[in-house]
């Protein structure tokens, strides 16, 4: 009996952590971009089919350098959440990201990716237009990109939809973010054939970013003052800015051939 209570309590705590990461007032990509960069100019469209508003991107100035910033945007109210499709990208979003990364490479600008998605969009159009192909291409692009890259997991890093923008030379994550193979609801549907058992799945999957750090997908956690980033947005955004600039300073000092080789070795070993 007491073990049942313990299990229930463990599951409750695990799912509360997921809910904290999903808090609607946590800093969003556009908010971070406008706060930490200057001159950000949004560039839209993948030049192939359309413009996916779940992924935003464009060149900007950050800490005395020109950078390309690409972010997954969840929106902040019902209207913008719908506009940005709750941060769930279609293939066009990944193709836009790849286009902008290639552009950054051309101008030797570092890339900063802000990761915040429950998962890539699951839908008929996304499948018809090659969701898997777009993600696979973004992964290869990030692995071989000949310019320094920093990814920051803001709140939710879900599935290959997050990974596609998270293969940076350095990967930072906010302390209360989650990074998972799939949202707990999806995991529960697959593991227990019942999406309602999401708390059980959350407890089993250890969705906290420290798990991702342990297996080598995350390098550095950015602390959040209690009760979390939603209550201290400006402090946390300043910490993000500081951490990104510090990492870019370090990365920009490494010869590019060495950096790319290091990156490929690192991801060859991640999750070993």
């Amino acid at each position: 009996m007491s073990s049942t209570i313990e299990t229930t309590e463990r599951e409750r705590i695990a799912f509360a952590a997921v809910e904290l990461a999903r808090h609607p007032e946590r800093p969003r990509a556009l908010q971070v971009i406008s706060a930490i960069t200057g001159g950000w100019t949004e560039l839209r469209g993948d030049r192939l089919f359309g413009d996916d508003r779940a992924v935003v991107g464009g060149p900007a100035r950050l800490g005395g350098r020109s950078v390309m910033v690409i972010g997954q945007e969840k929106g902040t109210d019902p209207m913008t959440r719908a506009l940005h499709n709750f941060g769930m990208p279609h293939p066009e979003g990944y193709r836009k990201a790849v286009r902008l990364m290639r552009q950054a490479e051309k101008f030797s600008m570092p890339v900063v990716c802000l990761v915040d998605t429950p998962a890539a969009h699951a839908g008929i159009g996304a499948e018809e237009r090659g969701q898997a192909w777009a993600i696979a291409d973004a992964l290869l692009c990030m692995l071989g990109l000949r310019t320094p890259t920093v990814s920051v997991v803001l709140s939710e890093g879900g599935s290959g939809g997050a990974l596609a923008l998270a293969l940076g030379d350095r990967v930072l994550a906010l302390e209360n973010a989650v990074y998972t193979v799939a949202p707990p609801e999806t995991c529960a549907a697959i593991l227990y054939r019942d999406a309602g058992q999401r708390a059980r799945a959350a407890a089993a999957l250890r969705p906290g970013v420290e798990t991702a750090q342990r297996i080598g997908l995350v390098d550095e956690l950015i602390p959040e003052p209690a009760p979390g980033a939603h209550a201290h947005a400006s402090l946390v955004i300043a910490a993000i800015r500081g951490a990104v600039i510090r990492n870019l300073d370090e990365l920009c000092a490494i010869p590019i051939d060495e950096l790319v080789a290091q990156r490929q070795r690192r991801y060859r070993e991640a999750g070993e």
Partner: peptide, 22 residues
């Protein structure tokens, strides 16, 4: 993905892609 391995399963996408890159 192999859900029982959680995030380590996700990392295999990166790992296999890095191997394909070679």
């Amino acid at each position: 993905a192999r859900m029982q391995e959680g995030i380590a399963s996700l990392a295999q996408m990166a790992r296999c892609s890095a191997a394909v890159a070679e």
